[in-house]
Amino acid sequence: MKTFREHPIVSLMAVLTLAFMWLPLFVVIANSLNSDKLLAHWGGFTLKWFKQAAADEAVRSGLVSSLEVAALTTLVSVGLALTGVLWWRRASKRGRRVYDGLVYARIILPEVVFGMALFLIFTRLHVQLGVLTMVVGHSVWGSAFATVILQARIRLLDEAVEQAAADLYATPRAVFVKVTMPQLGPGLLAASVLVFALSFDDVVTSFFLAGSSVNPLPLFVFGLIRFHVTPEVNAIGALVTLSMITLTLIAVWLLMRLFRGPGSIAARLGF
């Protein structure tokens, strides 16, 4: 029998906290459909902000360059993370510690710091700022996030299975292609989705590395927000929010399936 009863205040606080976390998302979606220009009151239903956003050339070209950067970043980050983790798996204790330290450093170092550092080196070497420099910058932290997810996955791999395949005369290549990779597959997909989402959403690193010729969507939106509230931002925001929620649900669902049991997900994501 359960002798402990939930404390009502704890439960109430938990529910309020969840409401606090979700409220702004609903506000953005609601306001994207609000015809009141100042967004102070509900002025009736409209789709005009969506039309206005869709017709905006800057929004369209921003979206294209953001997608481009996010796709390339995902490719580079997951590639670096995968090869790195395959090494890490059998590396010495000291090697692992250095590797883990570098992963951790890339995740917690304020983006402002290395955004600026990368800007300095690129301008010093006269590298033209643009899509590629953004991809480089995003991949520095993107590969770290991808690594954390892949490490979590690879820790669960049963080495005995690979060993058995090798004992049955599978070549190392066959072991890798037929045994290791299929087991890593869902982890790779989850890592890709999360890196893509992070890169697509990034402001700070792009702020330093975009240069003047490219204006990715978050930077465009950031520019609009800093100077005034425009309803158009809510429409872009609603679309971005809904697609990112979908992406995240896919990624988290994959992770939950991978790690069965709720506790292990967070734990194995490195928290």
Binding site: V203, V221, T241, V252, P262
Partner: peptide
Amino acid sequence: VQRLLLLATIVPFWTSFLIRNYAWVNI
């Protein structure tokens, strides 16, 4: 239920940082 609550905690976090903060301007 734990799984659902964790999902409810993680999903907003992975949703656009910029847009979520902009929402607070409205509020």
